[in-house]
Amino acid sequence: SEEELEEFAKEVLRRGITIIVNGIRITEVEIFVKVLREILEKR
């Protein structure tokens, strides 16, 4: 749901943790923004 997305976004921003994806360091915020864009483009 959109509320869950908002909560996830807030949690990500609070933690600001960097994770490893395919050997490249990407912040969770960047991943969230990318996923959010993909979701919005599909609408």
Rank of each mutant, 00 (worst) to 15 (best):
G16V: 13
E41Y: 07
E6K: 14
I31C: 07
R37C: 01
E38Q: 09
I24P: 05
K10N: 06
L5I: 05
L5D: 03
I17G: 12
E41H: 10
I19H: 00
G23D: 03
I39V: 05
L5E: 01
E28F: 06
E6I: 15
V29K: 03
I31T: 10
L40H: 03
E7R: 13
I19L: 08
K10G: 05
E30G: 11
T27C: 05
K42W: 07
G16C: 12
I17A: 10
R25E: 11
V12G: 01
E38K: 06
E2W: 15
R43N: 10
G16F: 15
F8H: 03
I39S: 03
I17H: 12
F8T: 02
K10H: 06
R14H: 07
V33F: 06
V12P: 00
L40N: 02
I17D: 11
L5S: 02
I17S: 04
I31F: 10
I19N: 00
V12M: 14
K42Q: 14
V33C: 06
R15I: 05
R14Q: 08
I39D: 00
A9E: 02
G23L: 10
V29D: 02
S1L: 14
E28I: 05
R43L: 15
T27M: 06
V33Y: 04
V12R: 01
I26L: 06
N22Q: 07
E11G: 05
E2P: 13
E11Q: 08
K42N: 13
F32H: 01
E38S: 08
L40D: 00
V33I: 14
E2F: 15
K42F: 14
K34E: 05
I39E: 04
T27Q: 06
I39R: 03
I24W: 10
I17T: 09
E30T: 09
I19E: 00
E41N: 14
V35N: 02
G23A: 11
I17Q: 11
F32W: 03
E4A: 13
A9K: 07
E6L: 15
E11I: 06
I20K: 07
E2Q: 13
R14S: 13
R25Y: 10
R37W: 10
R14I: 06
K10A: 09
I19Q: 00
L5W: 08
L5Y: 05
I31R: 06
E30L: 11
E38Y: 13
T18P: 13
I31Q: 15
E7T: 09
R37L: 15
T18G: 06
I24D: 04
T27I: 05
F8S: 01
I31S: 10
I24T: 09
E41I: 08
S1Q: 07
K10L: 13
V35G: 01
R14L: 09
T27F: 07
N22C: 12
E11C: 10
I24F: 09
F8P: 02
R37N: 05
E7M: 12
K34F: 04
G16E: 06
E28M: 05
F32E: 00
G23M: 06
R37P: 00
G16T: 04
E30A: 15
